[in-house]
């Protein structure tokens, strides 16, 4: 008999794999992005089923909220026309499929029910007072303070790098240069041009 949990798991994991396929195979980059967002949504559900609330929501916020928006933004900005002829799959697609199938099978052998059956791992059980966020927070700033600091460094790198790479320099900005304004003088701003006087004989 299938309980709700099982049903939910299979529904969402099926959807997850389908949308993963969608990311790979869809014709347009925009739909790929959408499929990826769907992937993340399904994962969030699955993680919530695991009682990993904090990460599930973080995934939603960080990925769907920020990263995928960035992707979408870039896709829209570049707006690349895909040549229809190139949309075909590669010649060696069947070969890759065999490779992938083999890999999944072998991983199944190592990870499947033989290795991690319920008998061996037990059911997912937490005490009533389990608080996922607290559990994470308890070690995040104690044991893992060094990686946390380093992650700050990574974010700094991302910021510096992204700015250094894409910032096109000041020549495109229109800024007020106060010293320059104050230094303005008649001599270098005003040009007196001598011209022949207007013809007066028109009257």
């Amino acid at each position: 008999m299938i309980d709700v949990q099982t049903l939910t798991f299979f529904a969402f994991s099926g959807l997850l794999l389908l949308s993963a396929g969608g990311v790979v195979f869809s014709r347009h980059a925009v739909s790929s992005v959408m499929f990826l967002i769907l992937c993340f949504l399904c994962s969030t559900v699955l993680w919530l089923m695991l009682h990993a609330e904090f990460l599930g929501l973080a995934l939603l916020f960080v990925y769907v909220g920020a990263v995928m928006t960035l992707f979408l933004f870039v896709v829209m900005m570049l707006n690349v026309k895909i040549d229809a002829t190139k949309a075909r799959l590669l010649k060696y697609f069947p070969f890759v499929l065999v490779l992938g199938g083999g890999l999944v099978t072998m991983l199944w052998l190592a990870l499947g029910p033989d290795a991690f059956s319920i008998k061996k791992t037990g059911v997912l059980a937490f005490s009533e007072h389990y608080n996922n966020t607290r559990a994470i927070g308890e070690v995040m700033y104690t044991q893992f303070v060094i990686p946390l600091e380093l992650t700050a460094g990574i974010l700094l790198v991302a910021m510096v790098a992204a700015i250094a790479l894409t910032f096109r320099g000041s020549q495109q900005r229109r800024v007020q240069d106060t010293p320059k304004q104050l230094m303005a003088s008649k001599a270098n701003n005003l040009r007196i041009v001598s011209m022949a006087s207007e013809h007066e004989g028109g009257e």
Binding site: L150, A158, A161
Partner: peptide, 15 residues
């Protein structure tokens, strides 16, 4: 630590 260090090392190189 290994992973975070690895990424902090590699990302500047990419950039």
């Amino acid at each position: 630590t290994l992973f975070v260090g690895l990424e902090l090392m590699s990302m500047p190189l990419y950039a």
